[in-house]
Nucleic acid binder design. Sequence first.
DNA 1: AACATACTACGAAGAGCTTCGTTTGTCAAG
DNA 2: CTTGACAAACGAAGCTCTTCGTAGTATGTT
Lengths: 131, 131
Amino acid sequence: MPGKPNDPPRPTDAELEILTVLWDRGPSTVREVQEAVARRKPTQYTTALKLLQIMAEKGLVRRNEKQRAHVYEAGRPREWTQRQLAGDLLLRAFGGSAKSLVLGALSAHRTSPEELAEIRKLLDKYEKGEE
Amino acid sequence: MPGKPNDPPRPTDAELEILTVLWDRGPSTVREVQEAVARRKPTQYTTALKLLQIMAEKGLVRRNEKQRAHVYEAGRPREWTQRQLAGDLLLRAFGGSAKSLVLGALSAHRTSPEELAEIRKLLDKYEKGEE
DNA sequence: AACATACTACGAAGAGCTTCGTTTGTCAAG
DNA sequence: CTTGACAAACGAAGCTCTTCGTAGTATGTT
């Protein structure tokens, strides 16, 4: 049931980077998030803080204020958000054609035979399980 | 070779809608684009015009000024842009895992067995062709 | 108690996105 | 030649995103 009133909105680029950190690390303080993000891209502490505050308002993250250093965690599991994003792009850019999306992904970067095999397994599962 | 200096940037949501119209219709005037877009979403003529002008500056569309009513066409083929977008999302949200992206797409909306079969054909092709 | 340290909160700037109203230019019909 | 229709161009407003500086507040150390 996508699009419920309290579903968080699609995360922006910077927000997605932060969510990725939270998914990888689990609940984290602003400092921890900032240090992780800064490893890939110079980022001020207050920038990370502000982002997290806004994300909390949007419902993208949850905040625990028990400690002096508030602890943030992702509001939705990684898979949930990935499904949102994939579904969103599927509709916006691929006219709902999953085939086109897969083609786009495969042609965008070389995929190993092992991964192709895993994708095949996925297809099997979806052919059996979901009628 | 993604990321060449003159590659157009990732289109925004509104821009993607317009590109879709251009891909579907081929080269079109502003009026034609506006009417097509307005069918799905109330849109003023000047809004479509401004968008197209900005998109021309960005290189997302090309403009032919031979006629009084300028004729716009997509700067890149649909497949090229789709590859960009899929690759971009693959990196930003899926850590480069094509398998995760496929899983996200499949779980986002029910996919017919026919389409699953077509996707399987795609995989075959990629297993043979690209070593 | 005073001080240094670490944290949150707030405000604002600068850029980009989207929309629209107004102006300017062009063409053709009366 | 004037008028009406239609097109491009321009400018600006309102919004979001991203960033950062500054101020205020709590904690712990000497």
